[in-house]
Design a protein around this nucleic acid. Structure first.
Lengths: 365, 365
DNA sequence: CTGTTAGCGCCTTCAC
DNA sequence: GTGAAGGCGCTAACAG
């Protein structure tokens, strides 16, 4: 029924081993022989049996890319870039390519582990984990163990936009400077004169959430110390109870909307809202407008990530740019061994402030 | 080094065959035996060898989902929904799950075929193709042939948000009513009084592009016939040369921006711009604003898809809603055989007009 | 440079 | 309900 390597060998009048060699291209074969084999492959419309090949070779050409939310362009951009970088070297004829494949965990720790097991089962050549990690100690331990096993089995592990993990299982880590980005964004608002700033944070247990928030708080703490109790140059002092001005929620539009309504209810004198990311910021903008307030005259709003739609928001969204595409490409190359890991295995990727129209000096009270 | 099924059998004091039976769960095994085997699996931290298993069984648990652009939420939402639907039935312990995996073609026909070959190689259990198809006859023929081979090998093929293909290879097709959506959107604008409407279309050779445009043109042709030469109730007659008011380009923000500038240069009297999708519409909005025109007072703008950000655009974007999530879930279930195919194998999914603030009656001249 | 020989780890009839 | 044996299709030493 299905044509096998032996059939090709018969038609080309060579041994199966020779066919295997020309197909894998990692062994010298006479040009004329190769020619004959390739022709037989075409004539028979032969397709290699992946499982058989993987079984015999004890490796596969599968590369897994794990993302938290495939519907979020934040992950889509990174994953697409990584997939492209991995798919390169395509000889057109589906020769030695890897099958780069993205797996959507939906942010669920169980599914994250399940996917890793599934990939382990397939003897994946490499695994790329993208985006923030969960801070639950049990889950971290489970992940470390799982990654260690994968590495043992020869799978390359790359982290992209994710904090470093202890243990030697990880080949390379590309981590975003979320803390620095958060800090610079807050400093930008402070420089404009803002002191009462609401913060719509992401899910509490995620590293990305914590780091961005820490950067934000650090900037506020610094100005608080400098200004003294009188509030310095800005509109009053930095409020003491930052917790009250922070609301956690998922990384979606709805969370931004609801949290912003609540923040402005708790403290109608807020002059700015900072959101966990651009999507959340969009929701925040909608809430501000629905309250009859203007952006940025009445309330400034800022996001994070600089997704493609952010520049088209009205007013254009002030945010922090993360080089998602570049990071994805690099992660892909790292996973394929096309690029040497950074010194120490860890590279920090900068986050750049993009000051646009959604932030401005606060209205004088 | 790596623990095999035989190791588990030895530890559980049963035969390899028995271990296989409890792992696959498709054969009666005594409860006590099963218990013992499962314990051994846990103690040894055994992970099934996928390739070996697939080779012996001649099937794999891999399911491929092909998308044109993973960074576009249009595809992300469908793919995520499909992946979730396929991943269901997870017994928690990575038992009988499928490995649902998304492949990004980047809209390239070669990569589409390459991915199918790769999936064929892996003996994928099912393949879901999402989004519009290329209309190049050669590519269509190649795709049909490839899908036929996949189907022959036992792979289920499902089309989601894609036009039907001839040939019996496809198990089920879910196709969007792009034509109807385009028509209803145009009718909405016509009812508001618009007659001179610019159209920023997608890539010329894609079915989605053509169908949406056809719907649009059909509505205009109808009103043109009804109004007669005097222009009827609207602001003047429907222009004859629709080609001149149509510009093709990729499905991205930039294309919308550039094409809109060009359209308004060609005909400054346009009262509305219709975009191929919401992302393009965002670019169109930016261009209109940069020309110093107001939306919708000076120019109405509309999109297609109703992606999550569209409701937060300012003004909120009039668009056509496609039930992407529902379609994705259904495609996933179809791929898993959890749901019977629609009668005739083809189901058309409706497209609903979402009239919002970015469209209004044209200013009187 | 090419052919021969063993398995890779598992599933699946068959017997019991 | 369980064990024994053969083979799935390919690759990787070895020879030659």
């Amino acid at each position: 029924m299905t044509v096998t390597l032996a059939d090709v060998a018969a038609r080309a009048r060579v041994s199966p081993a020779t066919v295997s060699r020309v197909l894998n291209g990692n062994y010298p074969v006479a040009a004329s022989t190769r020619e004959r084999v390739l022709r037989a492959v075409d004539e028979l419309d032969y397709v290699l049996n992946g499982p058989a090949s993987s079984l015999a070779a004890a490796t596969s050409d599968l590369v897994g890319i794990l993302v938290n939310d495939i519907a979020d362009p934040f992950f889509g951009i990174m994953a697409g870039a990584a997939q492209t970088a991995i798919g390169e070297g395509a000889s057109g004829r589906a020769g030695g390519e890897k099958l780069a494949v993205v797996c959507n965990t939906g942010g669920s720790p169980e599914r994250e582990l399940t996917y890793l097991t599934l990939l382990q089962r397939q003897r994946a050549a490499a695994v790329v984990l993208t985006g923030g990690a969960l801070e639950d100690p049990a889950h971290i331990a489970a992940m470390s163990a799982k990654l260690a096993r994968l590495a043992d089995a020869g799978t390359t592990v790359v982290l992209c936009g994710r904090p470093p993990m202890s243990g030697g299982a990880v080949t390379a880590t590309l981590t975003f400077d979320n803390r620095g980005g958060g800090r610079r964004l807050a400093e930008h608002l402070i420089a404009l004169g803002h002191r009462r700033i609401g913060y719509v944070a992401g899910p509490a247990e995620r590293t990305t959430t914590r780091h961005r928030l820490e950067g934000h708080r650090a900037a506020l703490a610094a100005v608080s110390a400098a200004d003294g109790a009188d509030g310095g140059a800005g509109t009053g002092p930095v409020p003491d109870d930052q917790e009250r001005l922070t609301i956690h929620g998922p990384y979606d539009r709805r969370s931004g909307y609801d949290a912003t309504l609540e923040l402005l209810r708790r403290d109608p004198d807020l002059t700015a809202i900072v959101a966990a990311n651009d999507t959340v910021a969009l929701g925040a903008c909608a809430a501000v407008r629905d309250l009859g307030l203007r952006i940025p005259e009445d309330v400034s709003v800022a996001g994070f990530d600089d997704l493609p739609f952010s520049v088209d928001a009205v007013p254009a969204l002030t945010t922090v740019r993360l080089p998602l595409h570049e990071a994805g490409v690099r992660a892909g190359r790292l996973a394929m061994g096309k690029e040497a890991p950074p010194p120490g295995g860890i590279a920090t990727i900068g986050a750049e402030l993009m000051a646009r129209e959604s932030t401005a000096p606060p209205r004088k009270l």
